[in-house]
């Protein structure tokens, strides 16, 4: 039998491990500070969301759905969110929502500037492409390991892993959108004496907005899909129930928390899609 010779060996994981160790050793303070910041954001968002009475929350979802799409859709979304409450997962949903919102906000803050910059800079773009591919295809569980080492257990590593997994589409689509601004439109901006900043803010970004919004929608969806994964390292919320249900082979509980995640995902997807449609101008 032909087998790969055992004498030649290369263990890239070892170097990554060394890198992580080195980071921990030298940047512990930085990670601690980052942990505090992320914690602070998540808890504030969670507090804010829990502050809204449940009936008002349902009404809000209904109104958003109605305004952005149609009366029927609004009613549908309200019923879905109502169902999550009836199942008894309201608080878990709020917690999941807080993690998702935090991750998405941070993804946008990181992703859009990088996307814009890579649209202008071909070298950066060439460098980013394999990195982004890797970030998206690497099994998401893998991120949990360094995330745990950097940030311990619980919410913060969950947010970190979610950001790593869900930022690529935001970067990619922002870059694509900026590059696809019609040539004459960009020329017109410069021909009238715009600075680069003015051309970006007054012409390129507004033109790119629909595609950027599509990127944000994808980012949100990916963040939702990390909910269960990140519960493996102790993030609370709907995902946690799924993990427990798996351990107990509890079909009912599994279905209840599973369907709640689906409902939440549908609502977030439709609402962000509608928002991105608002930005379209042929």
């Amino acid at each position: 039998m032909n087998s790969f010779p055992e004498l030649i060996k290369f263990d890239p994981g070892m170097y990554i491990e060394a890198l992580v160790d080195w980071l921990i050793l030298n940047f512990q303070g930085f990670f601690d500070a980052l942990t505090d910041v992320i914690k602070w954001i998540v808890f504030n968002i969670q507090d804010g969301l829990s502050f809204i009475p449940w009936f008002l929350f349902i009404l809000l979802i209904f109104l958003l759905g109605w305004k952005l799409k149609s009366f029927k859709s609004g009613l549908g979304y309200a019923m879905m969110i109502m169902l999550i409450g009836l199942i008894g997962l309201w608080e878990d949903m709020i917690f999941t929502l807080a993690i998702v919102i935090t991750s998405v906000i941070l993804s946008i803050i990181i992703g859009i500037p990088i996307g814009i910059y890579s649209a202008y800079n071909q070298k950066l773009e060439a460098l980013l492409k394999p990195l982004l591919d890797g970030m998206q295809t690497m099994p998401s569980f893998v991120y949990l390991i360094p995330a745990m080492i950097f940030f311990g257990l619980g919410t913060v590593p969950a947010v970190f892993a979610t950001i790593v997994y869900s930022t690529p589409p935001c970067i990619r689509l922002t870059s694509l959108a900026i590059k696809r601004v019609p040539k004459e439109m960009r020329e017109a901006a410069y021909a009238f004496g715009s600075s680069r900043w003015q051309a970006l803010v007054k012409v390129e970004l507004p033109q790119a907005m629909p595609t950027i919004m599509a990127g944000i929608n994808q980012t949100t969806m990916l963040a939702m899909s990390m909910v269960v994964t990140s519960s493996m390292i102790g993030a609370k919320g709907l995902g946690e129930n799924v993990i427990i249900a798996i351990n107990r082979t509890d079909i009912a509980m599994g279905f209840n928390s599973g369907i709640s995640i689906v409902f939440l995902a549908i609502i977030i997807d439709r609402l962000t899609q509608m928002i991105s449609k608002k930005y379209e101008h042929v």
Binding site: A191, V203, P206, M209
Partner: peptide, 12 residues
């Protein structure tokens, strides 16, 4: 100032 073949208008 410049005028363009495909107008180059800002559609937004």
């Amino acid at each position: 100032a410049m005028v363009f073949q495909n107008f180059g208008l800002f559609t937004h």
